[in-house]
Design a protein around this nucleic acid. Structure first.
Lengths: 209, 209
DNA sequence: CCGACAATACCAACCAGTTTGTATTTTTTA
DNA sequence: TAAAAAATACAAACTGGTTGGTATTGTCGG
């Protein structure tokens, strides 16, 4: 690591974020050099001409989402280390990433120290160990519950609505009458002052719940 | 600007983004110093004890969204310059920000040069001029249309679905029969291989369309 | 000029969620 | 322990979107 420069490829559609990352990582490592790609599909097209040791891969991107990109990459270039970086972190997404071969999963709200540590770990292990940064759902619940008076059960139901389940599916899953789920949903809508299912989904996604 | 240090307050829930920004901005300005707050509600609580010259304010945050924060801030501290930084940029959001007193609106996918220029402009003007960075919707349309074969009309209708309009409202707006809108919607769903309205909204939001 | 595609329009049966109610049981907490 | 809050359950009328069709008109490129 001292004597051969390490090539890090950053794949993220946010120019500012990518540039910031490079600036931060360079601060302690003269031997890092970077490439920046801002679209998933360009990554796949150009990976043949690039030989990164490590890819920092955003999940949410135009062109091709990070998870599909990860899948394609690991099939062809399994030696390249990949750290997924995302805003979201439901367990489902994290597990999908790890099972498709990601070496680590980090949230965008980690600090640079944690990112550096993760990079070091990933670069210096013969793979196998995975590092995942599970999101603190409790914090999220805390603010919806205090601001909107959302109860635990309502919160639980919101989580299933977010992943696209119908009232019927939620009821089956939680062993509830569909009427109960309807009632909860009604109360959620009232408390959040939302008018239609679309607005609920937007609320959930935009507030990263 | 040479002799009195400039205090920049960064309000963004993404630690990495904020740290990256600070690293980038420090590179050319020794006379900048920074505070970082990661929640909208904490901003409002602590603004009394802070005297920033400039606030870089993210729109999407837990606690209190950036637009409300902007509103509250400008009411009390109209002299503080505020640059909104966001991932999204529908004209509605931009206009809302500018009308509530934001001095500029930038997307997270601008580069550091553009950010620096905007900061300089905002700091050196007696307010009045506004800088907004309207998103290149054409680019977005380009990739959905090439990947999913979405037509112009379908794209147009998707935009209204995204803001929560019903088929009826869209039909009125575009002078179409509701049957036409239904047909377009049906085709959109098929082309995107989506099963229900929830998935469509998720697709639109997650792909920032 | 013709074939493909886009845009328009229609229909009926169907499915999902909303609204506006009421009401019982369980749990929490003052 | 009594009151409040949360969770449960039900029902009917209603609104909005889906599914799987069909069909006409316009338009653009080969």
């Amino acid at each position: 690591m001292k004597h051969n420069p390490i090539h890090i490829l950053i794949v993220d559609d946010h120019q500012l974020f990518a540039e910031g990352l490079m600036a931060l990582l360079k601060q302690h490592h003269d031997d890092y050099f970077f490439t920046h790609i801002h679209r998933g599909d360009l990554l796949i097209k150009s990976i043949g001409n690039l030989t990164p040791h490590l890819i920092l891969l955003d999940i949410k991107m135009p062109g091709l989402d990070g998870i599909k990109a990860l899948e394609l990459l690991k099939k062809e270039n399994s030696h390249i280390k990949i750290i997924m970086i995302s805003t979201f972190s439901d367990a489902e997404t994290i597990n999908k990433c790890l099972s498709k071969g990601a070496d680590a999963f980090l949230l965008k709200n980690v600090g640079i120290t944690e990112l550096r540590n993760t990079i070091d770990k990933v670069l210096h292990q013969n793979s196998g160990n995975k590092y995942a940064d599970f999101f603190d759902k409790d914090k999220q619940y805390e603010w919806v519950s205090t601001i909107y008076k959302i109860t635990k059960r309502e919160w639980e139901i919101m989580q299933y609505i977010k992943i696209g389940e119908t009232n019927q599916q939620i009821s089956n899953r939680l062993n509830l009458s569909i009427y109960t789920t309807e009632t909860h949903r009604k109360n959620i809508m009232q408390k959040l002052k939302l008018k239609n299912p679309t607005e609920l989904i937007k609320f959930l996604l935009e507030n990263q719940l």
